[in-house]
């Protein structure tokens, strides 16, 4: 987070300085984030690595405390003041207009402000979190558009109306003059998407955008997001705890557990042949309509508190296939088990 830290002075992981790959939109390499607290430094994200190509959706799955929201907030440089990002973390972001390591940018720098909201936009579970209640929808959209695109007021209004129309809001010319509270829940969700996309970002981070919605509305929003992703050639990071949603929207998945990506790979491969015991457990724990008679098999034990992070593999206290003396002592190696399919587990080493 501290942009003045000379990168040369930090210790590198073995293999030297990681190189940004030209074909990836975003590369997160060994991201580590801690929070200062009364009980000392608490590690929330502990060496997360994944990449995302242009125009694709990455599903980020994990339970509470897995670090999925902290990871994406680090990408947006929206972490609270008590967060400490390890200086060896790399967040390469590359578009037509940008080639930067976000980890080295100051949160309030001109470049970061251009990227945040302009090239990387974010939507949340609660649409009211994205809107101010005291300005009209149109005002707020126009403000965002004019901050990031060189257009006049009239043109910005036109873009806003077009965008509202694009996300399926009826009578957009009226809606731009309304306040957020005048819209229904489903419509607010759409307006939030319109606001986020009005700057034509290259990457949209969606943090549990459908968790609070009913299934029929969720299905509509998922379809809309996928359509917009294709039409705008935009990449997406979709955060959720719902594997079913992931299966429908994401081309690739990263499964997080206690601040680490334990498995990542193409969606179908990961769901059909999960390798990490946690991914396997998670998939078996979900009630499925095609397996109504099977008893659910829960993942035993509880998610440990981040204050009591287990040594070695973070999953070993709950893992049925734990190798004593190995899994509880050293961090597991990252093993390639298929095309673009990686798992952090001693079982495959």
């Amino acid at each position: 987070m501290d942009a003045t830290t000379p990168p040369a002075s930090v210790e590198r992981p073995p293999g030297g300085e990681p190189e940004p790959a030209p074909d990836q939109l975003l590369q997160v390499i060994d991201l580590k984030v801690s929070f200062r607290s009364d009980e000392g430094l608490v590690r929330a994200v502990d060496g997360v690595t994944f990449d995302l190509a242009q125009g694709l959706t990455l599903g980020l799955v994990g339970e509470s405390g897995s670090g999925k929201s902290v990871t994406t907030k680090a990408v947006m440089q929206l972490l609270p003041n008590n967060a400490v990002v390890d200086p060896a973390s790399r967040l390469y972001f590359r578009t037509e207009r940008t080639a930067a390591d976000i980890a080295t940018l100051a949160p309030r720098s001109r470049e970061m402000r251009r990227i945040r909201g302009g090239e990387i936009a974010m939507i949340f579970q609660e649409p009211m979190a994205s809107f101010s209640p005291v300005y009209t929808i149109g005002n707020q959209m126009m403000e965002a558009i004019r901050l990031h695109r060189h257009v006049g007021k009239a043109e910005a209004r036109e873009i806003a109306v077009d965008m509202l129309d694009r996300v399926g809001i009826a009578n957009p010319a009226l809606r731009v003059r309304q306040y957020p509270h005048e819209l229904s829940g489903g419509m607010r969700q759409r307006a939030m998407i319109a606001l986020a996309l009005s700057t034509r970002p290259a990457l949209l981070i969606a943090d549990e955008p459908t968790t609070a919605l009913d299934v029929t509305t969720q299905a509509q929003v998922l379809e809309l997001l996928d359509e917009l992703r294709r039409d705008f050639a935009m990449a997406m990071i979709f955060i959720t705890h719902d594997m079913g949603v992931i299966a429908q929207v994401a081309q690739a998945v990263a499964v997080m557990y206690l601040g680490r990506v334990v498995e990542r790979g193409p969606t179908r491969a990961l769901i059909d042949t999960p390798h990490h015991p946690y991914t396997e457990g998670l998939l078996r724990a979900i009630p499925r309509l095609d397996r109504l008679d099977e008893r659910l098999s829960p993942v035993g034990g509880d998610i440990p508190s981040p204050m009591e992070r287990p040594t070695g593999c973070p999953f070993h206290p709950r893992c049925a296939r734990m190798i004593a003396g190995t899994c509880d002592t050293a961090p597991p190696p990252s093993v390639k088990v298929g095309p673009d399919h990686h798992v952090d587990c001693f079982l495959y080493a």
């Binding site: 299934v215 509305t217 299905a219 998922l222 079913g244 299966a247 429908q248 769901i271 309509l289």
Partner: peptide, 25 residues
């Protein structure tokens, strides 16, 4: 029917083709 069609599933064989309902509840 609409409700059931909107359930996202991890089942590879089940096509996800939710029936769109107009408007809201």
């Amino acid at each position: 029917k609409a409700l059931m069609s909107a359930v996202p599933t991890v089942d590879a064989d089940a096509a996800f083709d939710p029936i769109a309902l107009q408007g809201e509840i």
